[in-house]
């Protein structure tokens, strides 16, 4: 399959690098200002080293990448809040051209889900977004396999940065600021970690899961907009400033604190919660875990890497293979 990859950050570059191994050809790779486009396949390594050297990915314009001859568009530009732009327009353009879309960007599926579905319904192209939730963890495809109508709720640890901070605080008795600085040094937290520690990132993933669940109860696509949950409707609490003694008190009781996202068809909730110290959800470090509450099969848990270029690219390329 011919791929156009928009976004050349950790995920976009990994997709471009690994695509060949999966038997796909990258015909375009773009960041926000430059692009490399070649109908026979671009030289990924050269484009990425040129970018690192400061010369840009290639001579082409990002618009050329969007207009290239691809079968599937991989949208891996940064997630934006509100209107999910420019990611949403990229998706719309590809679908209007009857091309497939694979999203790593959470925005369109979290914030404009009904529109996204409507665009896909009137296109010969399809939309997949496994990589938007839980990185490498195949949560959405598992949900589809089970049938969203047979899944009552999904919950879990969906943000590696917050989980790293909480598990380090609990293990070492260190304070929040100290562990956050350490996480930044290790590259586990970004320079501005707000999105992660305030729970927004986990909430966007929770909203996507909730949208997938609510879709099961909607027959008429026109009713989807009303059935979905928006980020504003989510109940979101972060972990900022949680003192180490809160974790100590939890530990004395055989428990620990994790930033847990919970999604049902109607609700999304993210907040620090007490979970058993040795329980399923108490994963450590940057690991993520998702637990599905099924109607007939009890709980099903899947754990793995929730972020990182290669891990997320693996989910993107699995989606490409499912098209």
């Amino acid at each position: 399959m011919r791929l156009a990859v928009l976004g050349a950050g950790a995920v976009g570059s990994s997709v471009a690098e690994l695509a060949g191994e999966y038997g796909h050809t990258v015909v375009a790779l773009a960041d926000s200002s430059t692009a490399a486009v070649d109908a026979d396949g671009i030289d990924t390594e050269r484009a990425l080293s040129a970018k690192v050297a400061g010369a840009g990915l290639g001579d082409a314009d990002p618009e050329d990448a969007l207009a290239a001859a691809y079968d599937a568009l991989v949208e891996a530009t940064p997630t934006t809040l509100g209107d999910a732009q420019p990611g949403f327009d990229h998706v719309a353009t590809a679908l209007e051209r009857d091309r497939h879309v694979v999203l790593a960007n959470k925005g369109p599926a979290a914030e404009r889900y009904a529109e996204l579905r409507a665009l896909a319904a009137s296109s010969a192209g399809r939309v997949r977004f496994e990589a938007a939730v839980g990185g490498a963890i195949p949560v959405l495809s598992t949900l589809s396999d089970l049938g969203p109508e047979r899944v009552e709720a999904v919950r879990g640890v969906l943000n590696g940065t917050a989980n790293f901070v909480l598990s380090r605080m609990a293990a070492e008795g260190l304070d929040y600021e100290h562990v956050l600085a350490e996480a930044q040094d290790l590259g586990v937290a970004e320079a501005d970690p707000t999105f992660d520690v305030e729970g927004t990132d986990a909430a966007l993933k929770g909203v996507i899961l909730s949208n997938r669940l609510s879709e099961a109860g909607v027959d008429d696509p026109d009713e989807l907009e009303a059935a979905t949950t928006s980020l504003d409707e989510a109940d979101v609490q972060g972990i900022t400033g949680l003192p180490p003694n809160a974790l100590e008190l939890a530990a004395e009781d055989g428990q620990t604190v994790r930033l847990i996202a919970e999604a049902t068809a109607d609700t999304v909730r993210v907040g620090p919660r007490l979970v058993p110290e040795n329980g399923t959800l108490a994963v450590s470090g940057t690991r993520n875990i998702v637990e599905l509450e099924t109607a007939h099969a009890g709980r099903l848990a899947i754990s793995g890497r929730g972020a990182g270029g290669d891990a997320t690219a693996t989910a993107v390329l699995s989606d490409v293979n499912r098209l």
């Binding site: 939890a250 919970e262 907040g271 329980g279 959800l281």
Partner: peptide, 10 residues
Amino acid sequence: LTVVEPLGGV
């Protein structure tokens, strides 16, 4: 105050 609630049904 911030409440760290238990996760029900764990």
